[in-house]
Write a protein that binds this DNA or RNA. Structure first.
Length: 442
RNA sequence: GUGGAUGUAGCUCAAUGGCAGAGCACCUGAUUGUGGUUCAGGCGGUUGAGGGUUCGAGCCCCUUCAUCCACCCCA
């Protein structure tokens, strides 16, 4: 006898059983419906891209996390697994430009792969839900993205959330204003990004440890901490660092557009401590925070006007957002944001089978229920009725349709609602409507 | 990549260096047309793996693997 192979998945890769998949599908459906509502259309691309498509876009640190792939008999085109959905979009736009109408609004819901060490809410295969607008330079595109993020968070049921907004150019301007040298800017952003976690003192301490001049640090701290509601923090920043191409004018325009869309002040915040990791952003950047329980950000995004230029003679201004479904699911589990009817199964009715002699009758009745749009399971084993009821109960199927010799002889079926044990005997002709009524009271 | 914790039945966890256990789950019956409750019985283990110390190791030591947590980074 050969030995059994230990059944396991690779590190950071997961299986999903039905109960989990139902919750994931629910969240993805809510996100997808908002994408549709805003006029975004679906695309898909291969999991594998050519090595040259992915490398050179993210920065050295990130690229160490890219899974590479090869096939023994065709090794001449090095392959890699997609790291996000943004670079594949850029490639796709470069490749099919003539078939796309600009501005091109697409969404893409698919798995991506990063070779990081797994942790809670963080895996090596995870799903992203991206929506981007290609070929629109105006702030109304960025505003539309933010308004859509707001709608998604509302529909997922998060009671409190904040969309933080910052600007790549403002980060640069802040660094210059405080006199932080060019080669320390990356350190600066990294520390500033930890503001929520380690506080002002922590950031200050870390920056000084990294060799940034104390005077420059304190000038900068004053500026980035100017947290005031709505556009007021923009006014204050403008007073300090003045005009120029520092993103403040664009953020002000965004603020007006968000106000026009009646997005409540409490749901967005111009936060100069928010930094996005990926290197390709060029304009406004966004990130969503749900404060408790703290799992980090669940969505992010921003404007990246140059990326598509890597696959096309001329670049196209692009802005978009990405939702990470894994953290969303963890948070929704923790806050129990699922509707009550979302149980462990999608089966709505189980048709019992009394004996092999009556199986055909049960199959016929199951067919009628399915024709009426009711998710139906006809019992496939040979066990006594009690066991069939136990099966329904354990799976969480709300209704059992009992079809025995007595019922068949009388041309009726018996319905039983498991939640309260109530029963009804109905003629076969009125079955679907009776099940529908039972279901609506579940 | 760095540091820490934990690995015992399908799951959650017990067990001074001295006979490997409990609860849940599962199976059978009480109950041949009615689930959840109850009762009785049953199945279930190379204590993650490999080595060492010891009369004796689930427990101590070493190695290794896995998982979790905190960093790094990020969804």
């Amino acid at each position: 006898m050969s030995r059994v192979i230990a059944p396991r998945t690779p590190k950071g890769f997961r299986d999903f059983l039905p109960e989990t998949m139902l919750r994931r599908s629910y969240a993805l459906d809510r996100i997808r419906e908002v994408f549709h509502l805003f006029g975004f259309e679906p695309i898909d691309t291969p999991i594998l891209e050519l090595h040259e498509t992915l490398f050179g876009k993210y920065g050295e640190d990130a690229e160490q996390l890219i899974f590479t792939a090869q096939h023994g008999r065709s090794a001449k085109d090095p392959l890699a697994m997609r790291y996000d959905l943004t670079v594949p979009l850029a490639r796709l736009v470069g490749q099919y430009e003539s078939q796309l109408n600009l501005p091109f609004k697409r969404y893409h819901i698919a798995p991506v792969f990063r070779g990081e060490r797994p942790q809670r809410g963080r895996y090596r295969e995870f799903w992203q839900c991206d929506a981007d607008i290609v070929g629109a330079a105006s702030m109304s595109a960025d505003a539309e993205i933010i308004i859509m993020m707001h709608e998604i968070l509302k529909r997922l049921g998060f009671p409190q959330f904040i969309i933080k907004i910052n600007h790549r150019k403002l980060l640069t301007a802040i660094g210059e204003y405080s006199g932080v040298p060019q080669d320390k800017l990356a350190d600066l952003y990294r520390s500033v990004d930890k503001f929520d976690k380690i506080g002002a003192e922590g950031v200050q301490k870390e920056l000084i440890e990294r060799g940034i001049d104390a005077a420059a640090v304190s000038r900068m701290m004053d500026l980035i901490q100017s947290r005031e509601p709505g556009g007021d923090s923009l006014d204050r920043a403008a007073k300090t660092i003045g005009g120029g191409d520092n993103g403040l004018a664009e953020l002000r325009e965004l603020a007006e557009l968000l106000a026009d869309a009646s997005i409540a002040d409490e749901h967005y915040d111009f936060d100069f401590t928010m930094v996005r990791g990926l290197g390709y952003y060029t304009g406004p950047i966004f990130e969503t925070v749900i404060s408790q329980p703290n799992l980090g950000s669940i969505s992010g995004g921003g404007r990246y006007d140059n990326l598509i230029g890597m696959f096309r003679r001329q670049s196209l201004p692009t802005t978009g957002t990405s939702f990470g479904i894994e953290r969303i699911i963890d948070l929704m589990d923790e806050l129990d944001l699922y509707p009550p009817h979302l149980g462990g199964t999608l089966v709505q009715a189980l048709v019992t089978v009394f004996s092999e002699e009556t199986r055909r009758a049960s199959t016929r009745i199951g067919g009628q229920l399915r024709a009426a749009g009711i998710n139906t399971e006809v019992y496939l084993g040979r066990r006594k009725l009690g066991r069939q009821l136990a099966h329904a109960d354990k799976k969480g199927i709300p209704i059992v349709v009992i079809v025995g010799p007595d019922e068949i002889a009388a041309g009726v079926v018996k319905l039983r609602r498991l939640r309260d044990g109530s029963e009804a005997t109905v003629p076969e002709a009125g079955l679907a409507r009776a099940v529908g009524e039972f279901l609506s009271n579940c």
